[in-house]
Computed example of a mutant assay.
Amino acid sequence: MAAQRTPPEPLARVTTPGSTRRARTWWITAAAAAAIAGVASGIGLAAVDRVYGRETAAFIDQAVAQDAVNLTIAAPATLLLAWLAWRGSVRAGLLWTGVLTFTVYNYAIYTMSIHVGPLFLAWVAVLGLTFWSLVGGLRALHPAVVAADLAAAPRRIVGWYLVVVGSVFTLLWLSDVVPATIEGRIPKGALELGLPSNPVHVLDLAIYLPAVIAVGRLVLLRRPTGLLLAPAAVVFLVMTGLPILVTPFVTAARGGEPAWAVMGPVGVITAVGVGVLVALLRRRSDPTD
């Protein structure tokens, strides 16, 4: 019986002492959040006018694209990765932190930008469960051991990808916000959403982009914490590109004028991110690994 309670060796190896059971608790709460998110996104797609009817056309297109990504990718990935991590997959656990980072980001936007409606409390539940699952899951991991497990990662490629992409988006958002601030008008990114400010600008400039750049810097400096957080940062950037790529198709289907021009640059950044993620998580050729 004692052997059955022993955690899988890879999992026990990368978690801090005594934290394996707590990590499993966070996988369960994250799975619950994914189930709620999946159901809520399905309802959002089935009743667009009922859920998003008070938003602008551009906002509705983005919300529908986000629901589609939540339902088909984010929620299933959270459930699958939580199960694989439960079974002892270190890399699944690291990918899981990235999907949760993406989910926290998007449900912060849902809860604070969309009019309160039938799914509001479900969105709040997803945000809360996912945020605390992410915090608890990251605290359970041992940075030095995870860094050793990812020793084959091309640190320069990973680090510079995070620094460059984070910096590019920072400059892009500032190019909208700064002129609007000087001229005393609403930024274009907020105006098309019918909001006083764009929540993407707020979250990115205040929290997410500085975090991405900081993680990239830590990777370049060969800090263990950098490699611990790098998978989450790369997954976040990759998944953030998915709704952007889906939105023009939603706009076209709804009879609007799609912004096809974003497909090229966002597609390149997303594709490069996938390649960086594969390189980051590749296993060492050392037979003892």
Score class of each variant (00 low, 15 high):
Val39Phe: 08
Val39Lys: 06
Ala40Pro: 01
Ala40Val: 00
Ala40Glu: 01
Ala40Tyr: 00
Ser41Asn: 12
Ser41Cys: 10
Ser41Val: 02
Ser41Trp: 02
Gly42Arg: 01
Gly42Ile: 02
Ile43Cys: 03
Ile43Trp: 10
Ile43Thr: 09
Ile43Tyr: 10
Leu45Glu: 01
Leu45Asn: 02
Ala46Ser: 14
Ala47Glu: 15
Ala47Gly: 14
Ala47Asn: 14
Ala47Thr: 13
Val48Ser: 11
Val48Arg: 15
Asp49Gly: 09
Asp49Tyr: 08
Asp49Phe: 07
Asp49Asn: 12
Asp49Gln: 15
Asp49Lys: 12
Val51Tyr: 04
Val51Gly: 09
Val51Pro: 10
Tyr52Gly: 08
Tyr52Cys: 08
Tyr52Leu: 11
Gly53Asp: 07
Arg54Gln: 15
Arg54Gly: 15
Arg54Pro: 09
Thr56Met: 04
Ala57Leu: 10
Ala57Asp: 11
Ala57Asn: 11
Ala58Leu: 14
Ala58Cys: 09
Ala58Asp: 15
Ile60Gly: 06
Asp61Lys: 05
Gln62Phe: 11
Gln62Glu: 14
Gln62Gly: 08
Ala63Arg: 06
Ala63Pro: 05
Ala63Gln: 14
Val64Leu: 01
Val64Asn: 04
Ala65Lys: 04
Ala65Pro: 05
Ala65Glu: 03
Gln66Trp: 07
Gln66His: 12
Gln66Glu: 14
Asp67Asn: 07
Asp67Ser: 01
Asp67Ala: 03
Asp67Trp: 04
Asp67Pro: 00
Asp67Leu: 04
Ala68Lys: 08
Ala68Gly: 13
Val69Asp: 00
Val69Asn: 01
Val69His: 03
Val69Gly: 01
Asn70Pro: 10
Leu71Ser: 07
Thr72Phe: 14
Thr72Pro: 04
Thr72Met: 15
Ile73Pro: 07
Ala74Val: 15
Ala75Phe: 00
Ala75Ile: 00
Pro76Arg: 05
Pro76Cys: 06
Pro76Ile: 05
Ala77Lys: 03
Ala77Ser: 15
Thr78Cys: 13
Leu79Met: 13
Leu79Thr: 11
Leu79Ile: 13
Leu80Gln: 06
Leu80Thr: 12
Leu81Val: 12
Leu81Gly: 08
Leu81His: 08
Ala82Val: 07
Ala82Phe: 05
Leu84His: 11
Leu84Glu: 12
Trp86Gln: 09
Trp86Tyr: 10
Trp86Cys: 05
Arg87Gln: 10
Arg87Tyr: 03
Arg87Met: 02
Arg87Asp: 01
Arg87Ser: 06
Gly88Val: 15
Gly88Lys: 13
Gly88Ala: 11
Ser89Lys: 05
Val90Gln: 03
Val90Cys: 03
Val90Phe: 03
Val90Ser: 03
Arg91Gly: 11
Arg91Ala: 09
Arg91Pro: 08
Arg91Ser: 14
Arg91Asn: 11
Arg91Tyr: 07
Ala92Asn: 04
Ala92Glu: 02
Ala92Asp: 04
Gly93Gln: 00
Gly93Leu: 02
Gly93Glu: 00
Gly93Trp: 00
Leu94His: 05
Leu95Ala: 10
Leu95Ile: 06
Trp96Gln: 06
Trp96Ser: 02
Trp96Arg: 01
Thr97Arg: 07
